[in-house]
């Protein structure tokens, strides 16, 4: 089968690749593009480990065809830290131990960044629904939610208001 040529942007850099028409964006990221930070946990859009952004919108890359990247902007975990340091979410996840095995972490971070870009001052409930598409089996989500709330507060220059009933 003839491969299709795709011209796109990944993490702000121009990228070209060849793919088969049925290949997912995740397969191309992890294969030919060597960007293995996006993970495959299910291949059916249920776990969120492959979360990326397409023109800033949060999507599961396992559900996107690679050919659909033509002319669009893809954002992956590899583009989250800038040259001079980690994104505040990445830093806060480390400080607050919001990861254990780390396999869901890239997807969770991408989803959390997408959430904060839309809603810089989310409630706990908004964070929980914003991350409801990202399965984590290790943490019970507690430290993840706290880290996102703290980061949001820091990025706004405020102090996080932790939910009641919790120290």
């Amino acid at each position: 089968m003839a491969k299709i040529h795709v011209t796109t942007t990944v993490n702000g850099e121009p990228v070209e690749f060849l793919c088969e028409p049925q290949q997912s964006m995740l397969d191309v990221l992890r294969g030919p593009l060597g960007l293995t930070g996006s993970k495959e946990g299910c291949g059916s859009g249920d776990c969120g480990a492959c979360s990326i952004t397409l023109d800033g919108r949060l999507i599961c890359s396992c559900l996107m065809l690679a050919v659909e990247a033509e002319g669009h902007e893809i954002g992956t975990i590899e583009g989250m830290a800038s040259g001079d340091g980690l994104h505040p979410l990445q830093q806060k996840f480390l400080e607050m131990a919001a990861l254990q095995c780390g396999i869901c972490t890239p997807g969770v971070l991408i989803a959390a960044r997408a959430l904060l870009e839309k809603n810089p001052d989310p409630t706990e409930t908004e964070v929980r629904f914003g991350l409801a598409g990202n399965l984590c089996r290790c943490t019970g989500y507690d430290k993840i939610v706290r880290a996102v709330l703290e980061t949001a507060a820091e990025m706004r220059g405020a102090k996080a208001e932790m939910p009641e009933a919790v120290r």
């Binding site: 293995t36 930070g37 975990i77 590899e78 980690l86 990445q90 400080e95």
Partner: peptide, 21 residues
């Protein structure tokens, strides 16, 4: 102490190598 884990930076940047990677 709640120190930063030694494998943390690699895990939040997608660089940590899992078997499928």
């Amino acid at each position: 102490q709640r120190t930063i884990r030694p494998d943390g930076a690699e895990k939040v940047t997608g660089r940590a190598a899992y078997a499928a990677d």
